[in-house]
Nucleic acid binder design. Sequence first.
DNA 1: CATGAGGATGGGT
DNA 2: ACCCATCCTCATG
Length: 324
Amino acid sequence: MSSPDPEALRHHLYMEFPGFPHSHVSPWPAEEHAKFFPSFPSMPEYLSRFDMLLAEDTAWLVRKMEAPTPLTRDEQMTHCKDAGQCPVIDSPGRGLCPGMNGQVEVEDRCLEQVHTLVLEEVLKDIETACKLLNITPDPAEWTSGQVQKWLLWTEHLYRLPPVGRAFQDLSGSELCMLSEDDFRQRTSQCGDVLHAHLDIWKSAAWMKERCSSESNHTFLGADEVCTEADSSCTGQPIHLWQFLRELLLKPHNYGRSIRWLNKEKGIFKIEDSAHVAKLWGIRKNRPAMNYDKLSRSIRQYYKKGIIKKPDVSQRLVYQFVHPV
DNA sequence: CATGAGGATGGGT
DNA sequence: ACCCATCCTCATG
């Protein structure tokens, strides 16, 4: 029995759910948590409400891998109920979920692999967000301005209700000291969700710290997380075209707002112009940014040969002149 | 009414 | 000098 092909699994996690995440948070029972994060018993309870795609997916992975699980989660949003929709899991001859006794070791290996992938993807997402926001991964290091930036970003990315001035003038370390109840009290709703997101960041920073202090690169190659050679670390302000590229690189986070129509040719479509403009405005500290102004900046690229309209011009569709 | 092209101006680096 | 951000006019569907 072969273990699951990580590439296939990654492909599945990313590509089968282009519309991820927005909107739903599902409880993640503590026992599930312990299964998925056995190496990190001290990770706080945030993972118990891990409202990211990977948790959504791993939730049904668990169901598939174990005997039917009495999960009380709302099944409405579960993307994959019948076998036909689970290409990776149900590939014949590739038993990720053998569904019979005596396969415990294989299942443990699968779980370990999923576990590693989950952490890998979470850390990558955080790295991307850091690039886009120009902040450090460790929330404790944030200034109050960076705290505001992160709040705005998170609230827009996950379409949470605005927090307004609930956390105004708080430094990162002060923010990190707040309990989930503090978050709930300071916000009208979804304070727990926000707290969960912050907890994910906190523990990612904690893990990164731990990994580096043990010079242990189990989860990420040094080139994936520790590189200083990209746009975020040069001190130069990020360019709009770079920003758009970064969003496009994370379809499972931003695919609802901007996505490739033809990655090879560099053709992309802005699906939610207001949202993309908002994110750009947060990045540049331009609260009044809108698509009118963003698109004017894109049009400046015509003359520079960075972005053009595709040969068959369509609304909200642009093309990188030099695709990757 | 949202989008699109592009001129003008001014700010920040 | 460069990269927008802002504002504006006119055109298009």
